[in-house]
Design a protein around this nucleic acid. Sequence first.
DNA 1: CGACTAAGAAGATCTTAGCTA
DNA 2: TAGCTAAGATCTTCTTAGTCG
Lengths: 105, 105
Amino acid sequence: MKLETKIANRLKEARLEAGLSLEALGVAVGIEEATAKVRIHQYEAGKHAPPFSMIERLAEVLGKPLVWFICSEDEKSLYLNLSKVSAKDRPQLLDELEALLKSGL
Amino acid sequence: MKLETKIANRLKEARLEAGLSLEALGVAVGIEEATAKVRIHQYEAGKHAPPFSMIERLAEVLGKPLVWFICSEDEKSLYLNLSKVSAKDRPQLLDELEALLKSGL
DNA sequence: CGACTAAGAAGATCTTAGCTA
DNA sequence: TAGCTAAGATCTTCTTAGTCG
């Protein structure tokens, strides 16, 4: 699947999960009311690619880490949970995850 | 730091690590010889944003997973190593990483 | 050769004006 | 209201033609 299509699908998935309309999401990320719903629809339909600055804002409003929009399906849950770890616990946890990775299985 | 700037920096970092010139990388990802070095330079300088299809090809040629270009600095190593795990070992490993994450520290 | 830049050409998104359920 | 679409206006990237070390 093309990356652009994947981002489009993830965007729609996250918006529906958040219970927002196309227009509500668009306004929430700073798009003017007059064009909000069309633009978000174009992103979700894969008709136009959102610029990076827009993807950043969408991620923030939708409560997902940036990588969640482009990672493979089997990594979504891991990256989402990792993003919820507190800054305090993060360094040690990342170390432990790496250690597990390096130890093989 | 802006996402676009981050991607630009990561691209340069990966290209230098691979020991490729601007032109060599551009040609490797399918850009015509006449414009290859200028376009890659524009991406690395943050002058222009590469389209998603280009980022995909750059990631492949440079041997990094897609998420490596946009993740935070402290996640780079983890995501790079995860991308090297074989498809066979992947499901179980992802399960174990998640289990570790959920168990707290 | 390798890295870099400006500016017009070419191609993308954004806005407008609609439509359908 | 919510979702969707076409097409011209607008803004971006891409190409060309160069410079600099």
